[in-house]
Amino acid sequence: MYNDNNAQTIVEYIKNFTRKNSLFMLAYGTGCGAIELPATLTSRYDAERLGVRGAATPRQADLLLITGYLSTKTLKRVIRVYEQMQDPKYVIGFGSCTINGGMYWDSYNTIKLLDKYIPVDVYINGCMPRPESVIAGFKELQRLIAEGKADGATKYKENLDWYRENQKKVLKNWPLVEYNW
């Protein structure tokens, strides 16, 4: 009964359980959606009861929130930050502008489609999403983690060339450093 397979399943289960209940969110407000994050983390909505808390540096973080539109200048920093994070790591795209450009569909300085540049696990729509929908997004991410489906980081490793190609199309004159995992 207690063969290796079962033991592994149990270990996997424990890993996923702790991962889903302890999400360290990187404190990086990339766009205007960051204004709803204080509200999400404070008394009325209190995301800390779900185990979501802030982390100061990318090394410690599991969760990267792209809070809204990404200008190309920020995209560089986001890619670098994302690559500095340690596996397993998750990305939540926050707001309509990460999904399809939103109201900035004709702006020359914002990217329109986030998942061409970094893998996204969960999208939250709305401009801007209310704290309730942010929490719903966290819940959805937790469900994916529990089922072992939040595998954006693996996707990124496997298709690194494709991602790099897309990134280079926007970021000219910018040496993309070697990604070591």
């Binding site: 399809n100 569909w105 020359y108 489609l113």
Partner: peptide
Amino acid sequence: LEDWEDVPPMRRDFDTLEYVNDTFFER
């Protein structure tokens, strides 16, 4: 801006939509 090579963007002859279609992906 950073690494901007095009026409200065606020000039009227810079077409932002064309730039977007050239540079970015659309859903």
